Simulated scan of single mutants.
Amino acid sequence: MRNHDSSSENWRGRIALMVAHCAGMVDLVALPVWMGALIARYGLPPQQAGTLVTLFLMGAVGSSLFCAPRFQRLRTRAVAAGGFAVAALAFGGVAATSDYAAMAGLHLLAGMAAGSALSVTHGTVGQSANPHRMFALCGMALGVFAIIFLGALPEIVAANGGPALFIALAIIMLAASVSSALLFPRRSARPQAAADPRAGAGAAATQPISSAVWFAALGIGCMGLVQAMMFSFLERIGADRGYSASAVTGVLIALGIVNLFPAPLAALLEKRWPARYVVLAGPVAQAFLALTISHGSTYASYAGAAAVFAAVMIFTHTFAFGLVAQLDPGGRALSATPAMLMVGAAIGPVLGGTLVQHAGYAMLGTAAMIIATIAVVCFARAGQRYTLRSLQ
């Protein structure tokens, strides 16, 4: 009999997964403030600032790739609680130093720790009764978190300096560690996988992962690359164009409010919009917004595109998550979701910093168009193979 107090199908388990998702995906919210603090408060050039954030994301990628194939054997609650606890200590260390080498090592450690926790979180979400809906709930929580974070942190950092950002990140990770230790759900087999007549006991964990999953993973990675590349410089683009600090903060707050809607909208449209079409449209919309942000000459165009930029990623990723869940009932591929997303996101800050430093902000939009084309091709292949698999 399932222990309902520790299931992902009750409020305790859902809360733990939502808190863990917010902490593990903090880069999706914090990048503009993060990069802005490293450049404006620590005096780092864009390329060096981007390298620090890239080290955090590369650490997350590495730990996710390590955890994903071992997901069925991991003690998920212990990994989640322990990972977030180590990340909290690492961010606390960053706040206490201004030595670049030390900051680099601590960013890498924080990424490895948070990435392992996020990996088991997404693997557990993938084993819930309805992964699409559960991931949408996590996205809604991230939207609420974004409003609080983006509404408060820019002013806190402006008043107290760069270390205040890393103290805040440490507190977020500590909260996720406590929540995971107390409430994180125990692993359970997905009902769909158990009821699949084509699969015997444990087959979902031993069958080879479909090539469609890898195409989808590459597409998600490309979108993560564009997201991180542009999002890292959202605050700097506004500041360098002469917009006031309050105007730029207002855009970030609006972005957080808008982020409340894509996840519940994705949940409502789960049965109405085929995932294979949504993931084709997502990269195109993302590239259009990136061009508007990087090439626009007015505050209205900058603010309008920036406010909805992250929402496209959240909406599309929810459908992509549900698509991959259907292709991999055992949860191994979904446990690697942080790697799918962050392998691109890890490249984004340093690539964006390099492009900005040598070619200006306009080059970010051009690069986004090229990467979006690759994403569309990958998602098209994934959707084609998914359709063929469904007909078999």
Rank of each mutant, 00 (worst) to 15 (best):
residue 185 P to F: 06
residue 301 S to F: 03
residue 5 D to T: 04
residue 205 A to D: 14
residue 6 S to D: 13
residue 53 V to Q: 13
residue 149 F to Q: 02
residue 200 G to Q: 05
residue 50 G to V: 08
residue 131 P to H: 05
residue 142 L to T: 05
residue 96 A to D: 02
residue 240 D to F: 02
residue 24 G to T: 10
residue 68 A to H: 10
residue 35 M to K: 00
residue 59 G to E: 03
residue 369 M to T: 15
residue 171 I to M: 14
residue 115 G to P: 09
residue 7 S to G: 11
residue 200 G to L: 06
residue 188 S to H: 12
residue 16 A to K: 11
residue 219 G to C: 01
residue 123 G to A: 10
residue 87 A to V: 04
residue 177 S to G: 07
residue 209 I to A: 08
residue 108 L to H: 08
residue 7 S to L: 00
residue 342 M to Y: 15
residue 314 I to P: 03
residue 198 R to D: 10
residue 15 I to S: 15
residue 237 I to Q: 10
residue 31 L to I: 06
residue 200 G to R: 03
residue 159 A to Q: 15
residue 208 P to V: 05
residue 90 A to N: 05
residue 79 V to S: 12
residue 49 A to L: 06
residue 313 M to A: 10
residue 111 G to E: 02
residue 198 R to A: 15
residue 222 C to A: 04
residue 198 R to M: 03
residue 227 Q to Y: 14
residue 54 T to L: 02
residue 137 L to G: 00
residue 265 L to A: 14
residue 383 G to W: 06
residue 212 A to W: 03
residue 233 F to I: 10
residue 239 A to Y: 13
residue 152 A to M: 14
residue 56 F to G: 09
residue 358 H to T: 09
residue 127 Q to H: 07
residue 61 V to N: 06
residue 355 L to T: 04
residue 85 A to W: 02
residue 63 S to W: 04
residue 312 V to A: 15
residue 47 Q to Y: 11
residue 202 G to I: 08
residue 365 G to S: 01
residue 96 A to S: 08
residue 283 P to C: 07
residue 133 R to W: 15
residue 16 A to F: 02
residue 320 A to N: 07
residue 385 R to V: 03
residue 211 S to L: 08
residue 214 W to I: 01
residue 16 A to N: 00
residue 195 A to N: 15
residue 306 A to F: 02
residue 220 I to F: 05
residue 339 A to L: 07
residue 55 L to T: 07
residue 92 G to A: 09
residue 19 V to F: 07
residue 207 Q to P: 10
residue 145 F to H: 13
residue 66 F to A: 14
residue 231 F to I: 08
residue 148 I to V: 11
residue 118 L to T: 05
residue 217 A to E: 02
residue 161 G to E: 03
residue 60 A to S: 12
residue 334 L to T: 12
residue 86 V to I: 11
residue 37 A to Q: 06
residue 198 R to N: 09
residue 306 A to R: 02
residue 195 A to I: 01
residue 137 L to C: 14
residue 246 S to Y: 11
residue 38 L to Q: 12
residue 108 L to Y: 07
residue 66 F to W: 10
residue 192 Q to N: 12
